[in-house]
C-alpha cells in the first residue's frame, strides 16, 4: 500500500509520535542548522519489508527536520508515489524490484523534480554501484546501516551530496576515468570493420535497422547483432550516443559509403511531428515499423 502523510494510514510518523508523546523530536544537529526555519526534508520509504519501513519511520520521527511523506511496498506503488508525492529523498530498497537497475531508471524518470534517489541494498558490487550512479542514484546505503548514518545520509543527499562508502567512491572514480579515456581517445585501439562502418553510417543518417539491412544486404537481426558489437566497442549506450560519438570524432570522415537510398522518408517542418506529442511517445502510432532493438535504443521512450 502507499501511505502518505495525508492519508488515513499516515506516513507522517513524526506528527503521530508527537501527538502520542511517545517520542520527543530532536533538533537537527549543528551541521544542518542552516536548514533552521525551512520545512522538513520529505522522505519516501520504498521497502519490501514492513519491519524496515516501520523501523526507519521511527528513526526519522525522532528528528524534527525529517518527515516521511509516503511509504510503499511494491514497485508499482513506488512509481506511483514518486510521480505524485513531492520528496527530497527516495529510499528505494532493491529487493522491491526483480531488476533493480531498470527500476532505478524508471523511478528516476518518473520522480518529481527535486527528488534524490538512494538505493538501499544488502551489498552493491562494483558493477551495480557504477550502474546505479549512472542511472541517477545519489547514494547507496547498506541495509544494515546504523540509525545515525541513515539520518546523515538522508541529510547529505538532500543537500546535493553523494553518499557512497569509500570502496564505492573508488569504483566510481575508476569508471569515470575509464570513460573519460574512451571519450577522448576513441580510435587508438578500436578497429571497426567495413560493415560496422556502413551500419554506423546508416544510423547517423537516421535509417532504421530494417533499412540498413536492405542497404547492406543482410538481415535485420544481423544488423542488431552488429549494432550491439559496435556499442560495446565504442562504449556507447544507444543510437543517439553512437551518432554523437561518430560526429564528434568524425568517425565517418573519408569513408566511402555505398549508394544508400537516402531519400527522405518523411517531409514537413522539423517540428510538425513534435506538434503532436502523441507522435513522440511510445506506441504503434509513433513508430509502427520499429524493431525490438530500436525500441530498446529509445529507452527513454519506453
Amino acid at each position: 500500500m502507499v501511505t502518505t502523510s495525508n492519508g488515513s494510514k499516515g506516513g507522517n510518523q513524526r506528527g503521530r509520535s508527537k501527538a502520542k508523546g511517545t517520542h520527543a523530536t530532536r533538533e537537527a544537529p549543528a551541521d544542518v542548522s542552516a536548514r533552521a526555519g525551512l520545512p522538513p526534508l520529505r522522505i519516501i520509504l520504498a521497502d519490501s519489508e514492513a519491519i524496515f519501513r516501520v523501523g526507519m519511520s521511527r528513526i526519522f520521527a525522532q528528528w524534527e527536520d525529517l518527515e516521511v511523506v509516503a511509504q510503499t511496498e511494491t514497485l508499482p506503488q513506488t512509481l506511483q508515489a514518486v510521480a505524485t508525492t513531492a520528496a527530497d529523498v527516495i529510499l528505494f530498497e532493491v529487493g522491491l524490484a526483480p531488476s533493480p537497475a531498470d527500476a532505478v531508471s524508471d523511478i528516476a524518470a518518473r520522480a518529481l523534480p527535486g527528488a534524490n534517489l538512494v538505493v538501499v541494498t544488502q551489498r552493491a558490487g562494483e558493477q551495480e554501484t557504477v550502474d546505479y550512479l549512472r542511472r541517477g542514484v545519489r547514494g547507496i546505503l547498506a541495509r544494515a546501516v546504523s540509525p545515525e548514518l541513515l539520518v546523515r545520509c538522508v541529510r547529505k543527499v538532500a543537500a546535493g551530496e553523494t553518499w557512497l562508502d569509500k570502496q564505492g567512491v573508488n569504483w566510481v572514480i575508476e569508471a569515470y576515468r575509464a570513460q573519460a579515456l574512451q571519450g577522448t581517445a576513441p580510435q587508438q585501439q578500436l578497429r571497426l570493420s567495413d560493415k560496422e562502418m556502413m551500419i554506423i553510417g546508416g544510423v547517423t543518417q537516421g535509417m532504421k535497422n530494417k533499412e540498413i539491412a536492405c542497404e547492406v544486404g543482410t538481415t535485420e537481426q544481423v544488423v542488431k547483432n552488429y549494432l550491439r558489437k559496435i556499442y560495446d566497442k565504442l562504449h556507447v549506450a544507444d543510437r543517439l550516443e553512437l551518432a554523437l560519438y561518430s560526429m564528434h570524432h568524425r568517425l565517418l570522415d573519408g569513408y566511402s559509403f555505398p549508394p544508400f537510398d537516402n531519400s527522405p522518408e518523411e517531409t514537413g517542418p522539423i517540428l510538425e511531428e513534435a506538434a503532436n506529442p502523441s507522435a513522440l511517445v511510445p506506441g504503434p502510432r509513433a513508430v509502427p515499423e520499429e524493431t525490438d532493438s530500436e525500441k530498446h535504443d529509445k529507452r527513454e521512450l519506453a
Binding site: M207, L240, E266, T267, I270, E273, P282, E300, L301
Partner: peptide, 9 residues
C-alpha cells in the same frame, strides 16, 4: 532527453 527518434529531412 526523455525520448527521441531520428527523422530524415
Amino acid at each position: 532527453i526523455d525520448g527521441y527518434h531520428f527523422k530524415r529531412l
